[in-house]
Design a protein around this nucleic acid. Structure first.
Length: 513
RNA sequence: GCGGAAGUAGCUCAAUUGGUAGAGCUCCAGCCUUCCAAGCUGGAGGUUGCGGGUUCGAGACCCGUCUUCCGCUCCA
């Protein structure tokens, strides 16, 4: 590929728009930042990816079932999950170094520094005196008392400021403490801004009755709050899983890189409930199983790798990402997390309901542990699109743009052309269309030269093109042309259905798993 | 959010120091009848991202705003 990487990514974005895959949201009104719409081809591709995931998870596993929980949930759900706190950081920028910090972290670090000073005083004194009484020293030594008062004052001010949501005061604390930026060493700070990563809206028709509810930032909680419903009504035995696909919303500070990080995105998650003590086994199982699923798409083994997390989220015991080589580098595609019993325990606490499982073999109840697989549908879409997009230089010197999508996922499976627009060829082509259209997405095109029509289908990733010629009227055969190799073979019209069935259906992918 | 670059037809790009917005491809109708985008004729498509200002006159200059791309953090 002679194209520069940054141009290559730009070309993919242009191509997506030009061929009806992805449009920017509200484009005629100048667009909306980090929100995108799927066009006529994008919607088909996305639907096919979702369906492949769903079948691989739900249909092929007899112990996994799927649900579709609402986007709106009771506000307490997000208190229990930790999102209200964890997604709520006061941020401040240093104007000189252009670095961004969490205001609370800056203050906490400052307090820690003062505590260090106290510690040093204590250590010095401990060396000087025999029979050293530390508590006595701390309460009487003038310097230490002064330090301690300072710490108390800062902490009190900070706590009050946070409770009152007084961001100006948070900034004032930073200024009063003479906190400097570690990089620039300056005190040239911006205002403190609160970034709530959850979108909120109001429920209720009358404003007094209205209560704030959130648009879910992840689909997982819809599974956890329904865990008992599904387990009981489905007579599920541990280990079992609950799968779900759906929209989630995050008010990202920096949302960028096309559809990689959007404010509204779609997740495909599966929470697997296991007996405590077996979680490591299932964690390893799903790590392997999910990579296998990705590899079945045939986009190249070298484009995937695991990335084990060293720093873990508050709920996690172990976590790893499956990363994909996007045009802008290896980035997270799917996360596999060992979430322990954190979520169900939290919901037990906040709801007051028992969310346990009675294990007949063990003859006791316990809160199951959870292993989660969570993949971003839009990221998956982008990974497939960017691996499929190719600008080829042909032997005759021409270039060809082709989307080598996995045939089972392609929006249009087959295009049917009459070689010329007369002599009864269109009629025969139409006949083939009406025969195939019940089982496959088909396209019909009679405009321009056949070569041009091939290229148009290449550009949207149609895996096969069927051409009806004069000979077809005599021998009932047509040529079928392969998108990737551009090779043609002659095949009887009656054999078309079986030919396509073997090559373009989800079944062909599912069989590999 | 901060800094840098950019925004002209569906796409890629022009437009002399400020003087009537163009080309190629695409698209549509027709001719031709050809198995890999290249023939012929005609046609559609733009309040130059949006709003204001300077000017006799702005695509160009100034201010604001929106959006995209590249860096700085988190995540699916």
């Amino acid at each position: 590929m002679s194209v520069k990487p940054e141009d290559f990514f730009k070309n993919i974005i242009s191509h997506s728009k030009e061929y009806g895959y992805i449009f920017q949201s509200s484009e005629i009104y100048d667009g909306l930042s980090a929100v995108y719409d799927y066009g006529q081809n994008g919607a088909e591709l996305k639907k096919n990816i979702r369906e492949y995931w769903w079948k691989a998870m739900v249909q092929l596993h007899d112990n996994i079932v799927g649900i579709d929980a609402a986007i709106f949930m009771h506000p307490t759900v997000w208190k229990a999950s930790g999102h209200v706190d964890a997604f709520n950081d006061p941020l401040i920028d240093n104007k000189d170094s252009k670095k961004r910090y969490r205001a609370d972290v800056l203050i906490e670090e400052h307090v820690a520094k003062i505590e260090d000073k106290i510690k040093k005083e204590v250590e010095k004194a401990a060396k000087r005196f025999e029979n050293f009484d530390e508590a006595m020293f701390r309460s009487t030594n003038a310097r230490v008392v002064e330090y301690q008062n300072k710490i108390n004052e800062i902490n009190n001010r900070f706590k009050t400021a946070l409770n009152e949501n007084n961001l100006a005061e948070v900034r004032q604390i930073i200024i009063d403490c003479e906190i400097v930026c570690p990089i620039s060493g300056s005190r040239n700070w911006t205002d403190v801004r609160q970034f709530n990563l959850m979108f909120s809206t109001a429920m209720g028709s009358v404003s007094e009755e209205a209560s704030t509810i959130y648009l879910r930032p992840e689909t997982a909680q819809g599974i956890f709050v329904n865990y008992l419903n599904v387990q009981k009504t489905g007579r599920m035995k541990i280990p079992f899983g609950i799968a779900q696909t759906g929209k989630a919303f995050r008010n990202e500070i920096v949302a960028r890189q096309f559809i990689f990080r959007m404010r509204e995105f779609e997740q495909m998650e599966m929470q697997f409930f296991v007996k405590p003590g077996t979680e490591n086994h299932w964690y390893d199982y799903w790590k392997e199983n999910r990579l296998k699923w990705h590899l079945s798409l045939g986009l190249g083994k070298e484009n995937y790798k695991y990335h084990d997390h060293l720093k873990l989220a508050h709920y996690a015991k172990a976590a790893c990402d499956i990363e994909f080589q996007f045009p802008f580098g290896f980035k997270e595609l799917e996360g596999i997390h060992s979430r322990s019993d954190f979520d169900l325990k939290q919901h037990e606490e906040h709801s007051g309901k028992k969310l346990q499982y009675f294990d007949v073999e063990e003859n006791k109840s316990y809160v199951p542990y959870v292993v989660e697989t969570s993949v971003g549908l839009d990221r998956l879409f982008l990974s497939i699109l960017s691996a499929a997009y190719k600008e080829e230089l042909l032997e005759n010197g021409e270039t060809r743009v082709v989307l080598s999508l996995p045939p089972a996922l392609a929006p249009t499976k087959v295009a049917i052309f009459p070689l010329v627009k007369k002599d009864g060829l269109p009629e025969l082509a139409e006949k083939i269309v009406s025969k195939l259209k019940f089982d496959f997405n088909v396209a019909y095109d009679e405009k321009d030269t056949v070569g041009k029509r091939y290229r148009r289908q290449d550009a949207i990733g149609t895996p096969y093109c069927i051409t009806v010629d004069h000979q077809s009227l005599e021998d009932n055969c047509v040529t079928i042309r392969n998108r990737d190799t551009m090779q043609q073979e002659r095949i009887n019209i009656d054999a078309l259905h079986a030919y396509l069935e073997d090559r373009v259906t989800l079944k062909s992918l599912l069989k590999q798993l």
